[in-house]
Design a protein around this nucleic acid. Sequence first.
DNA 1: GGGGTATTAGAATAGGAATTCTAGAAAACT
DNA 2: AGTTTTCTAGAATTCCTATTCTAATACCCC
Lengths: 205, 205
Amino acid sequence: MGRPAQHAEATILECAKQLSAEIGPQNLTIASVAERAGAPVGSIYHRYASRDEILATVWLDLVEAFQESFLAPLSGDDDPVEAGLAAVSFTCRWVRRHPCEARLMLVHRREDFASERWSKSHRQRAERLTAQGAAGLRGYAARLLGRAGAAELRSVRFMLVDLPTAALRRDIEAGVVPSKSLEALLLDTCGYALRRNRAQAPRAK
Amino acid sequence: MGRPAQHAEATILECAKQLSAEIGPQNLTIASVAERAGAPVGSIYHRYASRDEILATVWLDLVEAFQESFLAPLSGDDDPVEAGLAAVSFTCRWVRRHPCEARLMLVHRREDFASERWSKSHRQRAERLTAQGAAGLRGYAARLLGRAGAAELRSVRFMLVDLPTAALRRDIEAGVVPSKSLEALLLDTCGYALRRNRAQAPRAK
DNA sequence: GGGGTATTAGAATAGGAATTCTAGAAAACT
DNA sequence: AGTTTTCTAGAATTCCTATTCTAATACCCC
């Protein structure tokens, strides 16, 4: 019942996402979203309580989707080094396939999405996400290194998250698709680090 | 002649720098700088034409100082792999010694300092800086790889700049001093990548 | 001891953008 | 046909902060 919606929430979010990728989430104005979506600002506020909520939704949807696929290969039963490389490969492919999303995730940070002002429910969603990510990495650390303490978690995060980020960010920021040779260097480097760390790990049973 | 200054420019800049590190340059307000410096806003505008100019000065001073020291070891005549590792080590030490500055350089980006709105002179200073950095890296690429094309520059930048950034950023952001073991992992990884790349380079004479 | 000048002070102004508000419109239900 | 409910519209409001402005100060030099 009631008047049917003329502007879908999905459309609005999509516009907000694209615009954020183009001009940076810091610079996103409700007016610009409205213009791009062809909707009046009132209609946007009818669906979302605030700009912060829109930004939170864009970010959380994005990271949730990415993280789930990223973590999947890590929990298999194969050789942990192969699994780690699969995750890194996935990141490379994902970046290629989703340039807009890659920009948001690699060149911007959560705080650019006003995360300090998120409502409790968004904060919780973010915490859950962080916890899931940490859990996935910890499980992987246990498989690769035999232990999953703070130091192991940090090593694994460096190799599987920070290293790919470092390799890809610059090109993404410049709007360029990362070259195959850079990806090769990245994978090779990750492979080395993974093997070296495994070798140095205290031999688990 | 004239009334002597009660508030030094250096003090104002220092306050702006500290505050930026604490709350992020995006959130820096002139009022907050004035408060911290114990000066009225008018006195700040008497010295700096705008907020953008203050931010530009903070960023450029910082990056200039860092970059000069960072590039120094790269242009020596020693083994290029050692030279590269020296530069990375320098970054680690610098981060340890300058936590406030490290925050600004590693967790924030130039655009957070309003670089799109910088005046021509600040832009030029930034360009010069970028050019110097690129030149330094290109020279190093020539020594390590025998060539200094776009691909070589990118590899070198990944190994000497992006990789350390990625390794250290997370801790810096959390306000933690990066652990020795992480630094060791970083150096080891860089060392591997440098050697591998050198080995694969077309044998220069 | 008066003029000239750089600085201090902080109140007033201005502009940009988020958010609110009031009317009106378009279905669905009865 | 009237009522209810949900949405559209966009103008008006509010907030926040950069920037401007005017007056007052303090020191140097003559």
